[in-house]
């Protein structure tokens, strides 16, 4: 494996980690106004993700930094091209981050309700837009021979990308509902279970539609043939397993399966892209690839050494955090901080 491929894989890993982790805290944020009936319940719901959401978010900041460092043209074309969509996502993430910290710092009901809905907005928008964004990378966007995006905001919206957006939204919501079920006690726990059973099937249908759409609207079919290979099949398998486990109310394993679904679905997208990083809809030769968009071998080597040392350390202490906060949040847990 050359360094360009290694960095493509690493960025894929960062995105996957981000979606698996922040996926459930997006889901919890989306469900917050609906499953928390009282102020104390809402506080408990937030506390299920309180210690970890910020660490989860760093995965995408690192992903963005890694794209900049390893594939500057990808960074430049993607973020200047998907300009308004990214703006919307950034605004959502900004108000979300502030809302988590601010909502409990004043007792006025209007204050708290406002921030709760901002948490909802700040979770629902990125959960939807990430699907749209990744599907656009694969389906192709107007990119000219100078690696410049020539389209506008509405070029990013197509049936395929919208299905992808709804699929990521519903999958993250399901993932979050299961997480909430595992981390709370009744009545929140019961409501989260009911929600999982309602949203889960919707997510399953949308993901299957997305899989079909990938065959119809992208070049995945011509590239890989009828047999999609191990990664997409694993995504399908874990998706169906998740449905069955949720039905049996084996929520711990259900969570593992939605995590695997997110993992394999993201991996499928990256595998289908490779070696391209952004497909040009104008001319296949104008697509950005891991070779024509990349940094020099020297920079990639330096970055590889840094990643090799620090990624394991980060993984270790993040895992430790989850261990420290593994307990359920109950009505008696100290809520204010």
């Amino acid at each position: 494996m050359d360094l360009n491929t290694l960095w493509f894989v690493l960025i894929g890993v960062l995105f996957t980690g981000y979606f698996v982790l922040e996926g459930f805290d997006f889901g919890v944020g989306i469900l917050l106004p609906f499953l928390g009936k009282t102020d104390s319940e809402r506080r408990r719901i937030i506390n299920t993700i309180g210690p970890v959401w910020d660490g989860n978010e760093v995965w995408i900041l690192t992903g963005g930094g890694a794209i900049f460092a390893a594939f500057p043209h990808w960074y430049a074309t993607l973020f200047s091209g998907f300009y308004l969509a990214l703006l919307l996502m950034l605004l959502a993430l900004i108000v979300r981050a502030v809302a988590f910290e601010f909502r409990s710092k004043d007792r006025h009901p209007t204050w708290r309700t406002t921030w709760d809905w901002l948490i909802f907005f700040g979770s629902v928008v990125p959960a939807l837009l990430w699907g749209v964004a990744l599907a656009n990378l694969l389906q192709g966007t107007p990119i000219d021979e100078t690696k410049t995006f020539t389209g506008g905001f509405f070029d990013l919206l197509s049936p395929y990308t919208l299905i992808a957006g709804l699929a990521s939204l519903s999958l993250f919501t399901t993932h979050g509902a299961i997480f909430l079920n595992l981390k709370s006690t009744d009545p929140i726990q019961a409501r989260a279970l009911a929600t999982t059973k309602k949203v889960g099937p919707v997510a399953t249908v949308l993901l299957l539609l997305f899989a079909v759409g990938t065959y119809v609207w992208t070049d995945a079919f011509t590239r890989v043939g009828l047999n999609p290979g191990l990664v997409p099949l694993s995504a399908l398998g874990s998706l169906l397993a998740a449905g069955w486990l949720i039905h049996r109310e084996r929520m711990g394993w259900g969570f593992v399966m939605t995590a695997l679904t997110i993992l394999f679905a993201t991996a499928t997208l990256f595998v289908s892209l490779f070696p391209r990083v952004m497909v040009s809809s104008l001319n296949p030769d104008w697509s950005l690839t891991v070779y024509n968009a990349s940094s020099t071998p020297y920079t990639l080597t330096v970055m590889s050494v840094v990643a090799l040392i620090f990624v394991p350390i980060v993984l270790a202490y993040q895992a430790w955090t989850y261990w420290v906060f593994r307990h359920r949040i109950t009505a008696e847990t100290e809520l204010e901080y």
Binding site: G50, P51, V52, W53, D54, G55, E57, V58, L61, T62, G64, G65, A66, I67, F68, A69, A70, P72, Y75, S295, T299, V302, M303, V306, A307, F310, V311, V314, Y317, Q318, T321
Partner: peptide, 20 residues
């Protein structure tokens, strides 16, 4: 890009995880 990515990997993870 390198210092920016290193900043995220070395510093952002550390401060946000341990602040939580």
């Amino acid at each position: 890009g390198a210092p920016l990515a290193i900043e995220a990997l070395l510093a952002f993870f550390l401060e946000s995880t341990f602040l939580g």
